[in-house]
Simulated assay, not measured.
Amino acid sequence: MRPESLPPLVIAVAMQVFQQFTGINAIMFYAPVLFQTMGLGKDSSLLSAVVTGGVNVVSTVVSIILVDKVGRRKLLLEACVRMLVAQTAVGGIMLVHLRLVVGPLGWLIPSETFPLETRTAGFSFAVSSNMLFTFLIAQAFLSMMCSMRAFIFFFFAVWIVAMATFVLALLPETKGVPIDEMVDRVWRRHWFWKRYVANADEARVNDNC
C-alpha cells in the first residue's frame, strides 16, 4: 500500500477490469447462445464456438510472437481498434436485422510492472480482480443481453474506448525494461505516475533526517 506501489497496482487491476468489460469472456462463455440467437442451429452454434476458440488460440500465439517486437502499448491500441470495430459491427447487425441482441496482454503487463519486492502481492491483486470481474460478467451477461439486446455490444464498445484512453494516458511502454529497472526507467519518467515515486523518495529522505 506504499505510494510507489500505486502505479503498477492500478494498472494491474485496471487491465483485468478492462479485459472482462470489453466482452471477451462473455462472448467466449456464451458463444453457442449468441450464435443460436442469430439463427444458427445447435450443431452450427457449437461449431462456431469451436472456431471462435481457435481464433483465440491463434491470436494469442501471434501476440506472443509480436509483443517484444512491437511493444505492449501498440498491440493494446491496435486490439482496441479491432475490438471496437467488431463490437460495433455485431451490435449494428443484430440491431438492424434481428432486433435482438485483445487477451493475453492483460496477464503479461501486471507480471512485469511490479518491482520484485511487491510482485507476488501485486500479482495476487491482479488475479483476484480478474476472477471477481469474470464472475460478475458471467453472471450478468444473459440478463444484460435480454434487457439491452443488441445494445450490449455497444456497452462493450464504450468500455473498449475507455480502455484505449487508459492505455494512451496511463500505461507506459515496458518493452525491453528489466523488472529491477522498472522504477527508474518507467515510473520515475512517466508524466503522471512519477509523482507517486517522487513522494515516496521524499518521505524516505525525511525519515532518514
Rank of each mutant, 00 (worst) to 15 (best):
residue 166 F to K: 03
residue 50 V to Q: 12
residue 175 K to E: 05
residue 94 M to N: 04
residue 125 F to M: 07
residue 156 F to A: 01
residue 101 V to R: 08
residue 176 G to E: 02
residue 30 Y to W: 10
residue 98 L to D: 00
residue 85 V to D: 05
residue 37 T to V: 04
residue 95 L to F: 13
residue 42 K to F: 14
residue 177 V to L: 01
residue 137 I to R: 11
residue 81 V to S: 03
residue 18 F to G: 03
residue 111 S to R: 00
residue 178 P to Q: 04
residue 75 L to Q: 10
residue 57 V to F: 01
residue 1 M to E: 13
residue 65 I to K: 03
residue 36 Q to P: 01
residue 9 L to I: 02
residue 108 L to E: 13
residue 186 V to Q: 01
residue 77 L to I: 10
residue 51 V to S: 12
residue 184 D to A: 07
residue 4 E to T: 06
residue 135 F to W: 09
residue 109 I to F: 04
residue 95 L to R: 10
residue 52 T to V: 14
residue 47 L to W: 10
residue 89 A to F: 14
residue 38 M to K: 13
residue 44 S to I: 08
residue 8 P to A: 03
residue 134 T to E: 04
residue 202 E to W: 13
residue 139 Q to K: 12
residue 73 R to Q: 14
residue 132 L to K: 05
residue 52 T to Q: 14
residue 117 E to M: 06
residue 56 N to D: 07
residue 106 G to V: 04
residue 83 M to S: 05
residue 142 L to F: 08
residue 134 T to Q: 02
residue 201 D to L: 02
residue 204 R to A: 05
residue 170 L to D: 11
residue 182 M to T: 06
residue 40 L to V: 00
residue 133 F to S: 00
residue 90 V to Q: 01
residue 95 L to G: 03
residue 205 V to G: 09
residue 91 G to C: 09
residue 16 Q to N: 05
residue 159 W to Q: 12
residue 119 R to L: 13
residue 165 T to I: 15
residue 17 V to L: 11
residue 47 L to Q: 02
residue 28 M to A: 14
residue 49 A to C: 08
residue 134 T to F: 05
residue 207 D to K: 15
residue 30 Y to V: 01
residue 100 L to V: 15
residue 79 A to T: 12
residue 152 I to V: 15
residue 171 L to D: 04
residue 182 M to D: 00
residue 39 G to T: 03
residue 39 G to I: 01
residue 193 W to C: 01
residue 50 V to C: 13
residue 48 S to A: 12
residue 120 T to K: 13
residue 120 T to D: 10
residue 22 T to E: 11
residue 95 L to T: 06
residue 102 V to Q: 01
residue 87 Q to E: 12
residue 190 H to Q: 10
residue 182 M to S: 01
residue 121 A to I: 01
residue 53 G to F: 12
residue 26 A to P: 03
residue 128 S to C: 13
residue 206 N to Q: 08
residue 7 P to D: 07
residue 62 V to D: 05
residue 197 V to Y: 03
residue 9 L to W: 06
residue 103 G to R: 03
residue 45 S to D: 08
residue 70 V to L: 11
residue 102 V to N: 02
residue 139 Q to I: 06
residue 55 V to Q: 07
residue 31 A to C: 02
residue 110 P to I: 04
residue 62 V to N: 06
residue 203 A to T: 09
residue 175 K to M: 10
residue 162 A to G: 13
residue 123 F to P: 00
residue 177 V to I: 05
residue 55 V to F: 11
residue 42 K to E: 15
residue 100 L to C: 14
residue 87 Q to F: 04
residue 20 Q to E: 10
residue 188 R to A: 02
residue 68 D to F: 11
residue 25 N to C: 03
residue 16 Q to V: 00
residue 31 A to Y: 04
residue 162 A to P: 07
residue 3 P to C: 00
residue 192 F to W: 08
residue 163 M to E: 02
residue 49 A to L: 07
residue 197 V to I: 08
residue 98 L to P: 02
residue 149 R to T: 03
residue 73 R to T: 15
residue 178 P to C: 02
residue 4 E to C: 09
residue 183 V to I: 14
residue 46 L to G: 00
residue 131 M to I: 15
residue 185 R to S: 04
residue 155 F to M: 00
residue 158 V to D: 11
residue 41 G to C: 09
residue 110 P to M: 06
residue 99 R to W: 11
residue 128 S to D: 06
residue 182 M to Y: 00
residue 70 V to Y: 08
residue 70 V to C: 09
residue 169 A to M: 11
